[in-house]
């Protein structure tokens, strides 16, 4: 059996997150080097401030400034920082209860080594040089042996408050399509379309996905289908899809290759878009180096009877 395929899959997007009033105030405060908490009705001060009381579920909006100094409540030494973490040299993850707060904030602590960190140690915020209204405006915490800082009593009202953040996230996966699809993709490189037959219902699946979805059993017998096929249905695409260099209008069709139990999808070319019809007989047109046919073009055969393809989805 040929080797199964693998390739990188990058899942990356800059998510645009609106904040709501409490988170807006907190992150704007960080930009202005002010740390805000939120008071619950029973008098606890939550830092970082959340919108809803985790105990009572009440909406809470009563902002109060706390100190940028505090105490480590627990810690963990990170020997090998990972991509996107706050520091690129070894550091401690810490939960810090800031002076004036009743709950703890998660962040990084810049310290020389694990032996210099302990629960109960005093720390203070190290502000980022450039701040935009984000949790990363706190660059990290650093050891601090002075008195608790006195908060200035900020009201939590700001001019030009940030209302959103852009949270870019990238994850790098390795995608492997598995046995059946690897075989299909490998055959495509010889410009052959090879499906798999279900041992139970005898239908031929193209592309094969490893299981006959109606019988729930493995498919394995390989069956070459096509190259000719029938357009079972289609639409005319009039808007340009992003990242696709195809002139509109074009026809996007479901094509049942001869011998296949169901249709696959492809573009129809070599015929004006408004002359494509259900039942049209087509064949693939390959271009050098492409994994899939560039498009399908009419074979010139007479159209297929509706009854021959109406049950091929």
């Amino acid at each position: 059996m040929p080797e199964v395929l693998k390739a990188p899959l990058v899942v990356e997007f800059p998510f645009t997150r609106s904040l709501g009033p409490v988170q807006s105030a907190f992150l704007t405060g960080l930009r202005e080097r002010v740390v805000l908490g939120v008071k619950t009705r029973d008098g606890r001060t939550l830092v970082p401030p959340v919108e809803y009381d985790p105990v009572t579920a009440e909406e809470i909006r009563d902002l109060v400034e706390v100190a940028p100094t505090g105490t480590v409540t627990t810690w963990a030494w990170n020997h090998e920082p990972r991509r996107d973490q706050p520091l690129d040299t070894p550091f401690a993850w810490v939960l810090v209860r800031l002076d004036g707060a009743d709950t703890a904030l998660l962040h990084a602590l810049d310290a020389p080594g694990p032996d210099s960190v302990h629960t109960g140690m005093r720390v203070r915020v190290r502000w980022a040089q450039e701040r935009a209204g984000a949790i990363t405006d706190i660059a990290c915490f650093e050891p601090y042996d002075g008195e608790p800082a006195e908060p200035a009593g900020h009201s939590g009202e700001f001019d030009d408050a940030v209302t959103g953040i852009v949270a870019a996230a990238r994850l790098d996966y390795t995608y492997s399509p598995g046995r059946a699809q690897s075989a299909y993709i490998n055959a495509l490189s010889d410009r052959r379309t090879v499906g798999e037959r279900c041992p139970s219902c005898r239908k031929v699946y193209v592309p094969p996905r490893g299981a006959c979805p109606t019988c729930g059993v493995a498919t394995s017998e390989q069956v070459e289908v096509g190259p000719g096929g029938t357009v079972t249905t289609f639409c005319v695409v009039n808007i340009k899809a992003k990242n696709l260099d195809i002139e509109v209008p074009y026809v996007y069709a479901h094509i049942a290759l001869d011998g296949a139990g169901l249709a696959l999808h492809g573009r129809i070319g070599g015929i004006p878009y408004d002359q494509v019809r259900m039942g049209l007989r087509v064949e693939p047109v390959w271009t050098e180096g492409a994994r899939y046919p560039d498009h399908y073009r009419p074979t010139g055969e007479p159209d297929a009877d509706y009854d021959t393809y109406k049950e091929l989805p």
Partner: peptide, 15 residues
């Protein structure tokens, strides 16, 4: 999402 080896979606949601 750009799943490797797969034919890109040729037509958007309505397609």
């Amino acid at each position: 999402l750009p799943i490797p080896f797969q034919q890109p979606l040729l037509a958007g949601a309505g397609g």
